[in-house]
Simulated scan of single mutants.
Amino acid sequence: MVIPFTRKEKSLNALIDAIFPSLEINRSKSDYIISRAIFSIRNDSVDKINGRLIVKFIGEERLYYSLDEAIDDINNFYPVEFLNTLSVSVGCPIILFRNLDPSTGLCNGTRLICKSFQHNVIDAEIAVGQHTGNRVFFPRIPLCLSDEDMFPFKLKRKQFPIRLCFAMIINKAREQTIPNVGIYLPESVFSHGQLYVALSRGISPANT
């Protein structure tokens, strides 16, 4: 199951090519895109992989800025440029990271495909589960940060509740079944249970 390690960048590219073969030919096929994903431990590794894959898409790309404000930051120690961006392209996979409307399939962890962009709305299609094929429109929404976000200031953020999901952290993979799974472990997993979650998301060892 292991891709032999040669050099860090070369081996990561080999993993991406193994999970997303012939991406240039198949990038417009939703079934192809949603049937594969790479799991990793940390958000920085996930962001690195997502960044490599999104540049392979052709056509329209949109850059959406979150509306961020550091509350009570009278000295402007934390300018808006410090705070966050989201770059998405038509046809790319995205994952929802808030429970918006579970009765219609819009739960934390739902995977979707981007279909089009409006100035303040992202048009997407649910790609998994009993609501597959339903079109939804995401506006920016206020997001409250958890206690785990240890900023030295109180952050007020209004943004789209989605992120790219060619790759995702292992914790987001719970209860997902994906035909073609890659697991990128540049460092040790936090626990055996976490590794089990990653290994059990695929449908067979041959496709993991």
Rank of each mutant, 00 (worst) to 15 (best):
E125N: 07
V90M: 13
R135N: 13
A127M: 14
T85R: 14
F57K: 04
S103Q: 10
D101C: 15
I141H: 08
Y78A: 05
D73Y: 09
S87E: 12
I54D: 01
N108Y: 04
V55K: 08
G129C: 08
F82H: 00
L112T: 04
V121D: 01
F57G: 04
T110D: 04
P139C: 05
T110N: 03
V121A: 03
E61Y: 03
Y64S: 09
S146W: 02
G105P: 08
F117K: 02
N120I: 06
S87W: 02
H119W: 05
D72H: 12
L96F: 10
T110C: 08
S66F: 01
N84E: 15
D147Q: 08
E81N: 10
G105A: 13
L96I: 13
H131G: 06
A70Q: 06
L106W: 10
I94W: 00
F82V: 00
S87C: 11
L53K: 00
I122M: 05
C92H: 09
G91D: 01
I71N: 04
N120A: 11
I95M: 15
N76Q: 11
S66A: 15
G105V: 13
N76K: 13
S146L: 06
L53I: 11
Y64L: 09
C92P: 05
L86N: 06
E60M: 03
G59Y: 12
V55S: 04
Q130D: 12
P139E: 11
R135H: 15
E81P: 04
E125K: 15
G129F: 12
N84P: 07
V55G: 05
I58H: 09
V128W: 15
R98I: 07
L112P: 00
N108E: 07
K56L: 13
P79F: 12
Y64Q: 09
N99M: 01
I54M: 07
V136Y: 01
F137D: 11
T110W: 09
L112C: 14
K115Y: 03
F117M: 14
K56R: 15
Q118H: 09
L143Y: 00
S116F: 06
T110Q: 06
A124D: 04
R98D: 01
R135F: 12
G133P: 03
F57Q: 11
L106S: 03
C114G: 01
C107A: 09
R135M: 09
L143V: 14
N75D: 14
L96T: 04
E69Y: 15
G91I: 08
E81M: 14
N134T: 11
A127S: 14
Y64W: 05
G109T: 05
C107N: 11
L53M: 13
G109I: 06
I126K: 07
P93E: 01
R111C: 11
L96R: 03
R111Q: 08
T132E: 15
I122H: 05
C144R: 07
V90C: 10
E81W: 11
D123L: 07
V121G: 00
F137R: 10
A124E: 01
P142A: 04
T104F: 13
I141R: 09
